[in-house]
Design a protein around this nucleic acid. Structure first.
Length: 273
DNA sequence: TTCAACGTGATG
DNA sequence: CATCACGTTGAA
């Protein structure tokens, strides 16, 4: 049980450092691992933490100078943008992007499709008419609009669709989709798997998993990457989780995502009818 | 394969 | 309720 806690003092520094400066300027303590884990800002996936734009655009391709890190943990004062690769054709790029998007969306959102993304996916599946009768609204026009993360970001108006009240189509009004196809969460509106089936997207291998995951609530959830704890980059090394990391396999208490603290069921608000 | 971390049951 | 411990997942 209470094994050596001799390390309590030595990591005080790290803790203090972090405490005093929320703006991580921790030059020294950036690497400690081998069960000392410290520095590594969450798992790699969260290093490029899914910022809002990523939730919607889900496209880290740094092509357009649209580097726009929102809540991105800016550990580096000035991030030197790696040289953009020579752009292929727009359509090729868009296609690649879409594939990426799908993957990332499927993974990143715990199986929930963000509305904007869903729209794109549906469109890709030739169902855009279902979403947008006139091809208007939410910033997605023709296929050309897919070419940039911009429009998706624009579409990320969905992000601000905090509630159904803001829903552009007024559920039950002109909205062409069965509301039951959507899952409302505090983070936005997502497509339920039934909609994915309709869109033929269920064929994606991950989909069935996700579907069952959603239904059973059994899938490992991911940190949101945006809450305070998520943005914390240093383990306190003093909490029980840190102390018992070897056996406990738990993230530092101070880094535990707020979303994950909640019960999964509390996050998934499924609208039926 | 390794490692970080989530889920969950057991325990105090 | 907090903590511990283990199994497991998911990413690198």
């Amino acid at each position: 049980m209470s094994s050596g806690r001799s390390e309590g003092s030595r990591d005080r520094t790290a803790e203090a450092l972090e405490r005093s400066s929320c703006s991580e300027d921790v030059p020294v303590i950036e690497r400690r691992n081998r069960s000392g884990i410290i520095s590594e800002p969450l798992s790699k996936s969260l290093k490029r933490s899914r910022t809002l734009s990523q939730y919607t655009a889900a496209c880290p391709t740094n092509t357009n100078g649209h580097a726009h890190h929102n809540g991105e943990t800016k550990s580096h004062p000035a991030k030197p943008q790696p040289p953009p690769q020579p752009q292929p054709t727009v359509s090729a790029l868009a296609a690649a992007k879409l594939d990426r998007t799908l993957e990332q969306v499927l993974e990143g959102q715990n199986g929930l499709l963000h509305f904007a993304q869903a729209a794109v996916l549906l469109k890709r599946a030739g169902m855009e008419h279902m979403l947008l009768p006139g091809g208007m609204g939410m910033g997605m026009g023709g296929s050309d609009s897919i070419s940039g993360a911009n429009d998706l970001e624009g579409a990320s108006a969905a992000d601000s669709i905090g509630g159904i009240a803001d829903f552009p189509y007024g559920v039950g009004g002109g909205f062409p989709f069965n509301p039951g196809l959507f899952i409302m969460t505090p983070a936005g509106v997502f497509l339920a798997d039934s909609a994915l089936h309709m869109a033929g997207l269920a064929e994606y291998p991950a989909q069935s998993e996700l579907a069952s995951a959603i239904n059973s609530g059994k899938k490992k959830r991911k940190r949101c990457g945006m809450c305070q704890p998520c943005r914390r980059r240093i383990n306190c090394e003093t909490c029980s989780s840190c102390r018992n990391r070897k056996t406990g396999h738990q993230i530092c208490k101070f880094r535990k995502c707020d979303e994950l603290k909640k019960k999964p069921s509390a996050t998934l608000e499924v609208r039926v009818q």
